[in-house]
Design a binder for these strands. Structure first.
Lengths: 220, 220
DNA sequence: CTATATTCCGACCGATCGGTCGAATGTCAA
DNA sequence: TTGACATTCGACCGATCGGTCGGAATATAG
């Protein structure tokens, strides 16, 4: 028997991050306690504090891990080349795929965007700008892509910041809205086919709006 | 003089609701203590509990007040008549105006949509379905409007639930995104002109997308 | 084996949490 | 004035909060 349980499985640090992400995503920073995180991760609270020196540090580590994974996959999507429109479509598909993979990510992301949860957390975040820097790079890459598209005449001229807000609102929000979203969609969570529909919805809006053209509907 | 201070001014109940809304919107349900609410409202904690018997009840009262004000103004916007497209435009303008008036509303709304903050809160919310019923009526009215527009050939056929999600994401999210949103827009909060731009942005997306038509840009 | 460093945990800390209680004060009608 | 009711408040409750500490395991190196 001995030390057993799980041998080649993730170390305690990863287990803690996973547990914390799940909990923070669901009930927010102030909504969960370190005792609960420790319990979920399968160790004592004091052991938890051995790996992360404060609650704020743990939260930032969780957020940073998510954000950097996001950033990397989005960069890959952009680096794959193609016209601005093709790259934008791929960017959107990638975001939606990542959020649909687990809605924890969407909730955590949305929370971190508009939450002023705690004074200690804010102070620590100000001292360690890595998370903010990551979001900023993501936003800037998207803005640059829109700019290129406009320059190339593929996108209609528009206020890029507002378009960025729109794209984020269209992609992130529905996956974070939980029960409420399920209720709108008719009680089913985001299935494979719903994900596909969501991609089509966003693409359809960006390409053609919902208002019918003077005579013709449009296919793609 | 006598009882004075402020004569025709709001009673303690309204003062409490205002204070609580401000605080809950900013730091969420678990992020705020009843002591702080009482202090902000200008009375003792015990007096606060005289007016609201629990924290969950206070939160639900705050949310319900907001939601019903929302619902009423949105119904007025729809009742003013016009084609589905005109009514949808007016609906969107109304939402954006309300959220821009104070961003507490946007934050509180978005929070209530995707937050599973607390067990007690969830239990009480289940026992008093007024808030859920209000959101559901709002959503249903929007869905009905979209349906009418499609029937009338004004809107392109589409998945109505997904379109609902899109419209909410486009309108609500940017006002709730706080510092992050300001950062995207260039550090300025939502000024009168930004609000106008936001309306144009949403309308433009719903009417025409961002992808340029084969040859022509589009004005409105 | 022993020596050393790492990881774990139970017990504990002061502070704060939501909530209660009883008494003091204010208000108003009879 | 008196009695009934509403409102306020300070003091207090048990529970939980984030965080600390000293020592017991455990792993690793020599």
């Amino acid at each position: 028997m001995s030390m057993s349980s799980i041998a080649a499985s993730p170390g305690p640090r990863e287990r803690i991050l996973d547990a914390a992400e799940e909990l923070f995503a669901r009930r927010g920073y102030s909504g969960i306690g370190m005792r609960e995180v420790a319990e979920t991760a399968g160790l004592g609270k004091s052991s938890l504090f051995h790996h992360f020196h404060s609650k704020a540090e743990l939260y930032l580590a969780v957020a940073l891990r998510r954000l950097e994974a996001f950033e990397q996959r989005l960069n890959e999507a952009l680096a794959a080349g193609g016209s601005p429109r093709e790259r934008l479509d791929r960017w959107i598909d990638t975001v939606i795929d990542m959020l649909a993979d687990d809605d924890r990510a969407a909730r955590l992301l949305l929370r971190s965007l508009f939450e002023e949860d705690d004074a200690d957390l804010a102070a620590l975040a100000a001292a360690d700008p890595r998370a903010d820097a990551s979001t900023e790079r993501i936003i800037r890459a998207l803005a640059r892509l829109l700019h290129e598209g406009i320059e190339a005449g593929e996108f209609r001229p528009a206020s890029i910041p507002h378009t960025v807000q729109s794209i984020i609102g269209l992609t992130v929000y529905p996956f974070a809205s939980g029960d409420f979203g399920d209720q709108i969609l008719g009680r089913s969570p985001f299935s494979r086919s719903e994900v596909k529909r969501r991609k089509q919805e966003v693409r359809g809006l960006l390409h053609g709006g919902i208002v019918a053209r003077d005579g013709a509907g449009r296919s793609d």
